[in-house]
Design a protein around this nucleic acid. Structure first.
Lengths: 215, 215
DNA sequence: TTTATTGCTGACCGTAAAGACAACTTTATA
DNA sequence: TATAAAGTTGTCTTTACGGTCAGCAATAAA
């Protein structure tokens, strides 16, 4: 175990605390305004530090933005490694995938929104990441689904668009939550709303895969 | 036929042409930057007029933004009146609904993106519209679906979340097109991609409703 | 043809925002 | 404890942007 010699002084601890506080604030502001609309001043304000101090920790807005994006991508990578998901049947695996994605929408709505803004804006920052990281993983996952189809474990559905639909249907609970709140007549989405949503979405996806559970 | 006395002079025609050119440009910029990130200067540039002239036609950014939003909402209202959609069976009606929504994603991706930015940002401008217009329509449409369920015409699914999923799954082809282009390895989504997408999504939705087609 | 209306432009203003910089304070290390 | 490093703040500069305004140009109406 090669221990990195990072002295855990009072300062370094504070630094970590403050940095994550800043990142949380930045996430909020980027989620609500996108990159260009977000201001360092506002992020500093929410972090309860001065703008100059914010700049001390994150020398410029680009860098801060990239860190926020990196945070949410790390979570996705960690939680959504499709192949490594538990489950014996395709239904289990995809079910867990959907549930995990719903969980992320619930727990990290702001990160999700930042990502959405970025992609809708044409992915100026993330495009290269999509090519280098997401596409290879996507290709692998699509192949897995194809093999399931070939083995007759699930119905003959369109694998690529299955993923697109799953992503959209789960992500929407983070990105479009305001719309849902209005339509469901609630001030904010609560635990039970997410439970219903999860049930509904997993149900839809299971039906898409075909009722092969009992073979 | 009460004809409005709008003189169709050379000026008034030009005005209309120019206004719609501006709206198209504005849509592009708002789609790619959101409200706060968009600049009047840039919109003017794309419209190939001076900033001052742009301001002559649309005295301020708010107003222009609202007009762009209104344009896409009008299209949605016109094309997506759920109840008035043709079709005899629930499957027909919902199928047409999905196909119409896919069509809009293909034909008006920028409007769709502007809307997405707006909702993700917390719907600062559209919230009241959602309450006054969208919710009543939503409630009616949900009731229709419930009645179909009660009559046994479709399976017992969650009507509210069915709509959320349909919206998400169709809208994503406008909003997240960049991501799909990367994942599908294409420079841009073409006619046949949208066809495949439409087939896939309608298939998923039909499966969600239950295979009651042949009763 | 004259007059009124509409369209358009250049110069300008105020504000907000990113970020540079120097000075000062607090904390850590030798 | 003395010195170095890290953290913090106030001041300032530059730039981008939304918007005003006065005046000129083109077109329509009388």
């Amino acid at each position: 175990m090669t221990e990195k010699k990072v002295r855990r002084t009072r300062q370094s601890v504070n630094r970590e605390v403050l940095e994550s506080r800043i990142l949380r604030s930045a996430e909020i502001v980027f989620a609500s305004k996108g990159f260009s609309g977000a201001s360092m001043e506002r992020i500093a304000e929410i972090s309860k530090i001065s703008k100059q101090n914010l700049i001390y920790y994150f020398p410029n807005k680009d860098l801060l933005y990239k860190r926020v994006l990196k945070e949410i991508l790390d979570i996705w990578i960690e939680k959504l490694s499709f192949i490594e998901l538990n489950g014996n049947t395709p239904q289990d695996i995809i079910g867990n995938y959907v549930r995990e994605k719903m969980r992320i929408s619930r727990l990290h709505p702001n990160g999700s929104k930042v990502f959405a803004h970025e992609i809708i804006s044409g992915a100026p920052v993330l495009k290269s990441y999509l090519v280098s990281h997401l596409k290879p993983q996507f290709d692998r996952d699509v192949d897995v689904v194809k093999s399931w189809i070939n083995k007759g474990l699930i119905d003959d559905i369109d694998p690529e668009h299955l993923f697109f639909t799953i992503w959209a249907a789960t992500q929407t609970y983070a990105d479009f939550s305001v719309q849902m709140e209005v339509l469901l007549g609630k001030k904010s989405l609560e635990e039970d709303d997410y439970e219903r949503a999860e049930l509904a979405v997993t149900d839809f996806v299971m039906r898409a895969l075909g009722a092969k559970k009992n073979i």
